[in-house]
């Protein structure tokens, strides 16, 4: 049986009359990367900040490895590592100073090797305000993992990063997972969630509207697979009849695009049609529905999964 590391039950948080999070429950299993997805204002950050003990829930239960963030904040701090969405360090604090100070307060020696792994070794004496956004994010991650926490909470960790910094952070997250850490990742980047997470919960207007692995979620959708075909004579452009399992057809420059509920028979029939009409295939692409498409489907249905 899988062990739950994080448990949230019937959690609600309001700001005045505005209900930011409305009676949500979910669990995060040991050693997994759990994604909390949703558009801006869905309640992801509020949920995480209550879990981290930065805010107080109005009702419901929250526990990380059996520790209630509100009742035992000190115990919690050493168990979790957090990269906040909005936070900062003093402008004049150097990379090395931040690592030394935060380590000292956690009661552990500073792990300077993290600076090499984060590509910050040459920036040891650089002050925080002189770092690029990507470097600040990497430092924030180094500080979050320096005390070797078993649960790591990352709120939009790659927002505003360039492609290479993003790839670096992704590889760090996978490395942390392989070392046995549990990661909770809040993001509105669906490609990132699909690539990294084991399971996700999609939040919309303060409620969880879907949970499961990215594969499970996409499978529950309308199930349309996109088949794109390009051929020498483009005979498919003018072909009026449909192919098996195709529900929708379109043209995008040299490609004929088909949306199919069963891509196998569709692709076979297309290839046969091309061969019969002596047209040579140039390119064939079969793309299963992405998490992003599924997410858009859910959000456009007002949260009906």
């Amino acid at each position: 049986m899988e062990e739950s590391v994080v448990t949230i039950k019937k959690f609600t948080k309001t700001y005045g009359d505005f209900v930011a999070v409305d009676d949500i429950s979910f669990e995060v299993q040991n050693g997994e990367i759990f994604g909390l997805l949703g558009p801006n204002g869905a309640g992801k950050t509020t949920t995480l900040e209550c879990l981290e003990g930065l805010r107080q829930p109005d009702s419901g239960e929250m526990q990380i490895k059996g520790v209630d963030p509100q009742r035992e904040p000190r115990k919690l701090r050493d168990m979790i590592g957090v990269q906040l969405q909005t936070s900062g360090l003093p402008d004049n604090m150097t990379v090395e100073e931040s690592l030394k100070i935060f380590s000292a307060y956690h009661g552990v020696p500073p792990r300077f090797e993290l600076l090499s792994r984060m590509g910050l070794e040459e920036k040891r004496k650089t002050q925080y305000h002189q770092l690029s956004t990507g470097q600040q994010r990497r430092l924030s991650l180094a500080l979050a993992v320096n005390h070797d926490p078993r649960v790591i909470i990352l709120d939009e960790p790659t927002a505003g990063l360039d492609v290479s910094s993003r790839a670096e952070l992704h590889s760090m997250m996978q490395e942390l997972k392989s070392q046995g850490s549990t990661l909770i990742l809040a993001t509105h980047d669906m490609a990132e969630a699909e690539k990294l997470t084991d399971r996700v919960a999609i939040m919309l207007r303060g409620q969880i509207v879907a949970t499961g692995s990215p594969r499970e979620l996409t499978a529950k959708g309308s199930g349309m697979t996109k088949v794109s075909v390009s051929s020498e004579n483009s005979i498919l452009h003018d072909y009026e009849n449909s192919f098996p399992a195709v529900t929708q057809k379109g043209i995008n420059e040299e490609y004929s695009i088909y949306f199919s509920t069963d891509p196998g028979p569709t692709v076979s029939a297309i290839l046969e049609h091309l061969a019969t009409h002596n047209d040579n295939l140039i390119d064939l692409r079969v793309e299963r529905p992405s998490l992003e498409e599924r997410f858009l489907e859910i959000t456009s249905n007002g949260g009906t999964a």
Partner: peptide, 20 residues
């Protein structure tokens, strides 16, 4: 400025107490 800049939030999650 430190409070407005979110620095205390970073301090709080890293166990730095208010008195410090």
């Amino acid at each position: 400025e430190a409070r407005e800049g979110g620095i205390y939030r970073s301090y709080k999650i890293n166990s730095i107490p208010p008195i410090s």
